[in-house]
Design a binder for these strands. Structure first.
Length: 920
RNA sequence: GCCCAGGUGGUGGAAUUGGUAGACACGUUGGACUUAAAAUCCAAUGGGCAUUGCGCCCGUGCGGGUUCAAGUCCCGCCCUGGGUACCA
């Protein structure tokens, strides 16, 4: 073979590894650039062609930036803690560490074969004690911090304690769920337990009794973003609501900063929108209603204070603590029954039965603070305990949920905003004039909102408020394979280990299951206690613990004394380009921003956003192939003829199908049941059906990169993955097109070689045409890489090679630059050609060829001449010809006469060097 | 339901700022080379009409609009994918 990739590629991979070509250190003489990929979870299945897509794109960019003089940090590592290895351990007894190491080795081999320019000396693994030491360290910092809303940053708990000792908490503006007030004396009189309990209300990492997502199947709690439609994201198991004592992170303290930060970063609009929705800011008012016969006030949150006169009833969440107190004795039985029922419903039931309207009247009445009207208080599960105050004022005329509820239970509906017809549905729009609203009548909605807020302020029964949908993140898991908490318990009070005790290593256990008494697996460990015998925490941290700030550790991965040095952070700062899948939109990418902001507050990092620019690469979908078995027979009918029979469709392994034609010989050997199969063919072939589906083993449509690399080489694979389409698009995998890219590679090789595959380049000066081709390509490649349009860059290379081949160009001056140009995309062949051109160093750090305008300058432009907007012919005219002369020349052209047909053109539009349009 | 992204040949896609729609590939068809196959090379390839050549008409999900000019901008609708779901 002429182009012998199977010899070239391993040769250069060895060279890069032996010479540490991509090793990078702080270099103040050069500007830095940080290119990061989302690190993979090393699963047992290995890589398929979808995984490297983003890695190839980032690798091209990293190599391109090196050619442009940047000092590029381009590391890789592994998100090594996770459920699959643990589930496997439960089934087989194999330690998850063994499985994980094995999988990592396999991933590494596969990655190496693709020719990435990672600095592997900086590799991190989240399950490595030298790494998770810093995950534990960060947890300790979170534990000892609270959020000051006045200074808008995290501050030390020891300063908070000092304040408590001096003046109590009444001047404090903190992020907390605690609403009470205490004085310095009261604080000082509290015992240790009471003080520690109180501090839990302020810590950014805190232990609390909370409603959690409990997944019995996985035996653990899950964070909100790990639950999709009431099922666990991993495994799809049902999830229940349950009250449990758990560690949480007070991410809600950062809600506003997480929202504001989105405006400063270069992420896709859809991704930012997802985060905005997840944070879910809503502006409204807190209003206090009286309760007839009680001193208590009922706090409600509403975004429509203007509709206060339209409130005809109130609703409490079933979990609301006042329900018991206010329920009248005659309603008690029904209310208790309802609450019991509501509590036992799973998340899934609750969500799938949204349309079912349910609720009970408590017998109590609320008092509208503005008009003194008495309205009934109901309990219903359409009001959520976790949002706002868990109580609402219901305005059926202007809220669709209240409307259906009111209709169902025949509650009154009072319209207070004119404009809609409320006989069939509610009028939710924020427009119209106020009616039936006393002093507000005649105002428009915006005025009325302000008027109500001023009024309730004046009467001291309410104020404007902002609410966020974002919940605190549950941070403990009842699993084995995760970071142990650096926490021990003394008299039932949690304390953190001192930093010099870190890392707290994951202990060995006899089984990876909960104990008989239902405690997490770590409770099985021998001597799971401090030196002094205090028991250690048995929960472990969740998957996002280790991945939330891994990008920082890459900047100084071997530092034993600190997370990373000040110097490393000063130099490398934050990630300039981050590429990964959009499945992490509200999980990892939100937690990372939160951790980074916290580390910013405590002075660890220089930048308060971790990822400047982010690109979500699209998923590569599988293309499944099908055969059609005639029901009840062993006959298979070809795709085109299948409609004549009753058939069952079967997935067939895509390795047995070429261009939709089934390899029958291989197919009959695939499974015993097919040995004596018969086939009804069309044109002598068995044609398979196909469909685009998710790539998965069970669908027999998984394409591993290894086979393709064996057949075509890594450079071809790299180019082909990029050629497939825009990076962000989801696109089906289809091997058909790879041949075209392979042909291109061979053509490229031939430019530098004669018919006998001998390397031959000419020392002659290039012609203008040759220089033009080269410089046109330089410009295009620069532009395309700068806008991450890798697919069009590949076609530019194809055009360039086609044109140079046409000219039989083998001039050194052209081909040398071409090798550098293509080296970011196809590094192996580029290195080989570079060496053949007589160099003994790597092509990696060669300067990107300089674009020279003068070579691409044209002296004429081929004008498309349109009549009434339709292109009819082309006319070559000198560049910079004045408008009126162009007009004359066009009208004089022979082709023009036919279209003008002797008439006088109404209008002639001339856009110099672009187009001429003649309106007849 | 709400929010976001998208809809261009048989297929993947190109058209970057309103200015030649279909670049570059795949596939298909025909041809060259070969004992043969592979590989390679050449030609054609959006649809329709006409084919003796010239050509002409239609065409970027659908219906309107703005403009000398619309895949691109505006209005309304349909479909696909993703996110979210009683968030008051």
């Amino acid at each position: 073979m002429d182009y012998n990739f199977s010899e070239i590629e391993p040769k250069w991979q060895r060279y890069w590894s032996e010479n540490k070509t991509f090793k990078v250190e702080i270099d103040h003489a050069k500007p830095k650039f940080y290119v990061l990929d989302m690190f993979p979870y090393p699963s047992g299945a290995g890589l398929h062609v979808g995984h490297p897509l983003g890695y190839i794109a980032s690798d091209i960019y990293a190599r391109y930036m090196r050619q442009n003089g940047y000092n590029v940090l381009h590391p890789m590592g592994y998100d090594a803690y996770g459920l699959p290895a643990e589930q496997y351990a439960i089934q087989t007894g194999t330690h998850p560490d063994v499985t994980t190491k094995k999988n990592i080795n396999r991933y590494r081999k596969q990655l190496d074969k693709i020719g990435f320019s990672f600095d592997w000396d900086r590799e991190v693994r989240t399950c490595d004690p030298n790494y998770y030491k810093w995950t534990q360290w960060t947890f300790i910092q979170l534990f000892h911090s609270w959020y000051n809303k006045d200074t808008k940053k995290a501050e030390a708990v020891k300063d908070l304690v000092a304040t408590f000792e001096k003046i109590g908490n009444h001047q404090l503006n903190a992020s907390t769920d605690f609403e009470g007030i205490f004085s310095a004396d009261e604080w000082n009189e509290m015992n240790e337990k009471a003080q520690q309990d109180m501090l839990m209300n302020y810590r950014l990492a805190y232990l609390s009794e909370a409603m959690v997502n409990w997944c019995p199947e996985l035996g653990t709690v899950l964070a909100n973003d790990e639950v999709k439609e009431g099922l666990s994201e991993r495994g799809g198991h049902p999830v229940k609501r349950r009250l449990m004592k758990q560690w949480s992170l007070r991410i809600t303290a950062y809600a506003q900063r997480l929202l504001d930060g989105l405006d400063k970063i270069d992420w896709s609009d859809s991704l930012k929108e997802m985060q905005r929705n997840w944070i879910g800011r809503s502006d409204g008012a807190t209003i206090y209603f009286g309760i007839k016969g009680f001193e208590d006030k009922l706090e409600v949150f509403t975004t429509r204070p203007d509709t206060l006169f339209g409130a005809t009833y109130m609703v409490l969440a079933p979990e609301h603590e006042i329900v018991n107190k206010i329920t009248t004795s005659d309603r008690k039985e029904k209310i208790d029954k309802y609450i019991a029922w509501a509590k036992n419903r799973s998340e899934r039931e609750r969500q799938s039965e949204v349309k079912n309207i349910s609720g009970e009247f408590t017998g109590a009445f609320g008092i509208n603070p503005l008009n003194g009207k008495k309205i009934p208080i109901w309990v219903a599960d359409y009001v959520l305990a976790g949002y706002g105050s868990g109580a609402i004022m219901a305005v059926p005329a202007h809220d669709s949920r209240d409307y259906t509820f009111a209709k169902h239970f025949e509650l009154p509906i009072i319209q207070v905003v004119s404009g809609g017809d409320i006989s069939e549905e509610s009028f939710d729009a924020k427009e119209g004039k106020m009616i039936n609203s006393g002093f507000m009548d005649g105002m428009d909605v915006k005025e009325a909102i302000q008027a109500t807020i001023s009024k309730v302020n004046e009467l001291n029964v309410g104020f404007s408020t902002v609410n966020y949908r974002l919940r605190d993140a549950i941070f403990s898991r009842q699993r084995y394979w995760g970071e142990p908490f650096p926490v021990y318990y003394k008299d039932g009070i949690p304390y953190t280990l001192s930093e010099d005790k870190l890392p707290l290593s994951l202990p060995e256990v006899d089984k990876y299951l909960p104990t008989e008494s239902g405690k997490p697996p770590l409770a099985r460990a021998q001597n799971w206690a401090t030196d002094k015998g205090y028991p250690l925490e048995t929960n472990t941290m969740p998957g996002f613990a280790g991945s939330s700030a891994y990008y920082l550790r890459y900047t100084d991965p071997h530092n034993e004394d600190e997370y990373f040095s000040k110097e490393a952070n000063e130099y490398w700062q934050n990630v300039d380009l981050y590429i990964g899948g959009d499945e992490h939109a509200v999980g990892h990418l939100l937690y990372s921003r939160f951790w980074n902001k916290f580390l910013f507050d405590i002075g660890m990092v220089k930048k308060d956003e971790p990822f400047k620019k982010l690109i979500n690469q699209g998923k590569i979908q599988g293309r499944s192939s099908f055969v059609y078995r005639i029901n009840g027979t062993k006959k298979f009918v070809s795709f085109g003829l299948r409609k004549k029979y009753k058939t069952t469709r079967l997935h067939v392994d895509i390795d047995m199908v070429d261009n939709d034609v089934l390899d029958i010989a291989t197919f009959v050997k695939w499974r015993d049941e097919f040995t004596d199969a018969e086939f009804i063919l069309e044109d002598g072939k068995y044609i398979c059906g196909h469909e685009i589906e998710k790539m998965s083993k069970s669908k027999h449509n998984v394409q591993s990169p290894d086979l393709l690399i064996e057949k075509y080489g890594a450079d071809t694979l790299r180019l082909y993955e990029m050629f497939l389409g825009p990076l962000e698009n989801h696109k089906p995998w289809d091997t058909k097109g790879i041949e075209g890219v392979f042909r291109f590679m061979k053509k490229l090789w031939k430019l530098y070689h004669n018919e006998n595959n001998q390397f031959v380049v000419s020392e002659e000066e290039p012609t203008n045409d040759e220089l033009k081709i080269l410089h046109k390509t330089i410009k295009k490649i620069m532009d395309d890489i700068n806008r991450f349009s890798f697919n069009t860059a590949i076609s530019a290379f194809m055009i360039c090679v086609n044109e140079l081949t046409e000219l039989k160009c083998n001039k050194r001056k052209i081909l040398s630059d071409l090798a550098i140009l293509i080296s970011s995309n196809a590094p192996h062949i580029a290195e080989e050609l570079w060496q053949l051109l007589g160099h003994d160093d790597t092509i990696t750090y060669q300067n990107f060829p300089e674009f020279k305008e003068e070579y691409v300058k044209e002296n004429s432009f081929s004008y498309p001449v349109s009549f009434n907007g339709k292109m009819r012919f082309k006319l070559d005219l000198p560049i910079n010809m004045p408008r009126d002369e162009i007009e004359k020349a066009v009208l004089a052209a022979e082709d023009a006469q036919k279209w003008i047909e002797g008439k006088t053109p109404k209008k002639i539009i001339v856009v110099p060097n672009k187009i001429v349009n003649i309106v007849i």
